[in-house]
Design a protein around this nucleic acid. Sequence first.
DNA 1: GTCTTTTTGCAAATCATTTGCAAAAAGACA
DNA 2: TGTCTTTTTGCAAATGATTTGCAAAAAGAC
Lengths: 157, 157
Amino acid sequence: MSTSLPSPEERLRAAGQRVTSQRVLLLRLLDESKEHLDAEALYARARREMPDINLSTVYRNLAVLKEAGLVEQRYFAREHGREYFEPSTANEHYHFTCLVCGRVVEFETPLIARVRAELQARHGVRVRHACICFEGVCADCAARGQTVPVSERSSSK
Amino acid sequence: MSTSLPSPEERLRAAGQRVTSQRVLLLRLLDESKEHLDAEALYARARREMPDINLSTVYRNLAVLKEAGLVEQRYFAREHGREYFEPSTANEHYHFTCLVCGRVVEFETPLIARVRAELQARHGVRVRHACICFEGVCADCAARGQTVPVSERSSSK
DNA sequence: GTCTTTTTGCAAATCATTTGCAAAAAGACA
DNA sequence: TGTCTTTTTGCAAATGATTTGCAAAAAGAC
């Protein structure tokens, strides 16, 4: 989600990566997006401005940008097999996904850091990364009486 | 993992599911396993006792067992695209995976429940499920000086 | 500009997981 | 126990996301 970050070009240079038009475009699209995008969605948007861009270029660049710390990979709810991305931001935040409408609520909490600290203290492990995501029913959907997600109880197709 | 649970047959019946030799076997193998297994690993073990069992049967049954609440699906670390399973147990616990040796440390903490409560209180959402996993370097690997995971910095193959 | 290295587009491959289908097994009931 | 109905299985082929090999094109360095 859009914050005042340096331009895509600057961020690429700062990260020691080559500045290609494709990378600049992808980074900009991720910056501009209100939602988290997966490779396919990002590809669809990129094509509108660069019709010849290839899906594998999107995948390759997402991997490069992730490695360079310019974007972060996220996994959501039942969609865990699909990777979503967002630009790296300073503040650590987590996600809640509504199973009914798909809305993603971002939130912050110091408790996860405490869990990490506990883990470190009690088990001597060094935590490098955490994947935290919650899912359920958002306030609006609950108010609308939508309590049972369509694709939960029934077969998952 | 292995705890004193009712027999596979009993659990299947209690869950209103048909008792097939394949299901009994899979459930037993999951009970017996010290590690979390994915479909492929479970299949490999199952074949030893039932050579004709099919991989798709394993997948289908894991889905059934999950739906019935008899097993729980987990996602780990960089392996997020792959689903691992363990028998459902009463106590809620979370996982830490060592990026170097692959060891999985299970731990409990009341803090995650607090995060859920906070989410509920502050955003009005009803949390149904949480996917929580941590990764990093375990105490043993850190002691052995193994700080930089093999497949982290280099290309991810 | 020229040269070297990295990146791209394209097509084909991979890997986990799913599905269609006919035969086999499970559960219900006579 | 035998029969009937429904669910499950094995097998093969399909799917869907992601990856890879390769030759041409673009980026960065000199």
